[in-house]
């Protein structure tokens, strides 16, 4: 499975593709929702790693508009619960992620993205 928590950390790794290679764009996705245990300590620790604009955009691509456009300054439990759902409970089951720069397609099948590159794409 791939969720926004890892999608938000993932850039294209094709040889020479070093700019505008993040975030990967979702294409033809099927999603599933699965409850996960709410862990506010983990989320607070993870917050500094998030690219906020990318997360908001990607969540919208998956049909979720619950996140505020700007990352709030005050981190309360309501916000963390929204973030928890977006990061950890939306599973992309099928579809693809496409690099905005080189257009490499990373297919997602049965929840698992295929990150394998062809010989000429390896750095």
């Amino acid at each position: 499975m791939v969720r926004l928590i890892t999608h938000n950390l993932l850039a294209c790794h094709v040889r020479g593709c070093n700019s505008n290679n993040f975030p990967l764009q979702f294409q033809d996705v099927q999603i599933g929702l699965r409850e996960a245990e709410f862990n506010p300590d983990f989320l607070r620790g993870f917050l500094p790693k998030i690219e906020w604009n990318a997360l908001v955009d990607s969540a919208r691509q998956l049909g979720d508009t619950s996140l505020p456009a700007e990352q709030p300054v005050m981190i309360d439990d309501d916000f963390l619960k929204t973030l928890h759902h977006v990061l950890l409970e939306i599973h992309v089951e099928e579809g693809a992620m496409v690099c905005p720069n080189c257009k490499h397609v990373y297919p997602i099948s049965n929840g698992i993205p295929n990150m394998l590159l062809a010989d000429h794409e390896i750095g």
Partner: peptide, 12 residues
């Protein structure tokens, strides 16, 4: 989360 990946190709 799981990825099909060859670690010898590097990470992104």
């Amino acid at each position: 989360d799981l990825f099909l990946q060859d670690i010898g190709q590097g990470f992104g």
